[in-house]
Amino acid sequence: MKNTILSACLAVLALAACDASQNRRFPGLRASASPRLANPVSSEREVSLPASPELPTMTDGLPETVKALPVAAEDLSLAEPVDALALPHEEHLYPVDHLARARALRQEEDLSGALTEARRAVHDAADDVDAAEEALDTVILLARLTGQKQLASDAYGELSRIFPDGPEPLIQQARLLLELGDTTGAFRAAETAVELDPEYPEGYQVLGRVHLTAGELDEAILRFQQAVHLDPYHGYALNNLGLALLQSGKAEQAAEVLAQASYLLPQVAYVHNNLGLAYERLGRLEEARMAFDTATRLSPNDAKARLNRDRLNRHS
């Protein structure tokens, strides 16, 4: 009997060692004032423009590298609090590497199970800063993959507590809160990020997006101008500044700014579409048509640019 128990224990330890051998750290979010964003996620927002049938696009310019995947309801453990960031779990007689389990389950495409294991790793990390950072990074990635933006936002909030001097977790949290429609929470996070690092343009960029979403155009223009002042080659901040100016009825200034954005971002279709709207507002129809043509060439599936081009062709 003792030999049987001993054999079973050895087998378990061997499995744990195999899991640990697959351990690879996810990119950390240590504070930095210069890098473009870690763990990027698409942040596109549409902004109403009363006189233009097809809406322009506001964005942070983040590539859509992480797409939410459907998760069946039965994959979720009903015994665990879904809203909790850190999941308590039963005690084990032997150490369990929950992050290794999360990675293995992700490779098996069990994203829900992987997320559960990552949240257990957050619980086990306690005051171990490095372990907590790695576990939270993993939760963020898996939460985004499963479309759980609130959980990802909570994880960024916890990272901002662990690294209180860095603005990046707060900036990422503000973007997610904007996507969730929580402009108050997004404003609070973005404003704190700006206070932490007044020289970091991304803080002003996301704070401007909050104001623009709330319809506070003067404040949005000011924040985007601050972002561009700190980084004159920030094409996405220029794009958003152009939209705020266009909504404020300053079409000539908007066209100038959007022309700069299109020069810096020649392969980004929606920037050309936005420039076309500004030219159309000014009555510069040939230039507007060229901008819409460029947008549709770059992105044939861009319905807005295609409809704007067709509408202009019909009425000119």
Results as ranks from 00 to 15, higher is better:
residue 97 D to I: 07
residue 97 D to Y: 07
residue 98 H to G: 05
residue 98 H to M: 14
residue 98 H to N: 09
residue 99 L to I: 14
residue 99 L to Q: 03
residue 100 A to W: 03
residue 100 A to Q: 06
residue 100 A to D: 06
residue 100 A to K: 08
residue 101 R to S: 11
residue 102 A to T: 13
residue 102 A to D: 05
residue 103 R to S: 06
residue 103 R to M: 06
residue 104 A to K: 12
residue 104 A to G: 09
residue 104 A to E: 13
residue 105 L to G: 03
residue 106 R to C: 06
residue 106 R to G: 07
residue 106 R to N: 10
residue 106 R to V: 05
residue 108 E to M: 10
residue 109 E to C: 10
residue 109 E to I: 04
residue 109 E to S: 15
residue 110 D to I: 02
residue 110 D to G: 04
residue 110 D to H: 14
residue 111 L to Y: 14
residue 111 L to G: 01
residue 111 L to C: 06
residue 111 L to W: 10
residue 112 S to F: 01
residue 112 S to A: 15
residue 112 S to Y: 15
residue 113 G to L: 13
residue 113 G to D: 10
residue 113 G to A: 08
residue 114 A to V: 12
residue 115 L to S: 04
residue 115 L to A: 04
residue 115 L to K: 10
residue 115 L to I: 02
residue 116 T to Y: 09
residue 116 T to K: 15
residue 116 T to I: 13
residue 116 T to H: 15
residue 116 T to A: 15
residue 117 E to P: 08
residue 118 A to E: 00
residue 118 A to K: 06
residue 118 A to F: 04
residue 118 A to C: 07
residue 119 R to C: 03
residue 119 R to M: 09
residue 120 R to A: 02
residue 120 R to E: 10
residue 120 R to M: 12
residue 121 A to D: 04
residue 122 V to E: 01
residue 123 H to G: 04
residue 126 A to T: 10
residue 127 D to Y: 05
residue 127 D to F: 11
residue 127 D to H: 13
residue 127 D to N: 12
residue 128 D to L: 06
residue 128 D to F: 12
residue 130 D to Q: 08
residue 130 D to R: 08
residue 131 A to E: 10
residue 131 A to S: 09
residue 131 A to C: 08
residue 131 A to F: 05
residue 132 A to G: 10
residue 132 A to E: 09
residue 133 E to G: 06
residue 133 E to W: 05
residue 133 E to V: 11
residue 134 E to C: 00
residue 134 E to L: 01
residue 135 A to K: 00
residue 138 T to G: 03
residue 138 T to H: 08
residue 139 V to N: 03
residue 139 V to S: 05
residue 139 V to H: 06
residue 140 I to W: 02
residue 140 I to R: 00
residue 140 I to Q: 02
residue 141 L to C: 05
residue 141 L to T: 09
residue 142 L to E: 00
residue 142 L to Y: 01
residue 143 A to G: 13
residue 143 A to D: 00
residue 143 A to Q: 06
residue 144 R to H: 12
residue 144 R to Y: 06
residue 144 R to K: 09
residue 144 R to F: 01
residue 145 L to Y: 02
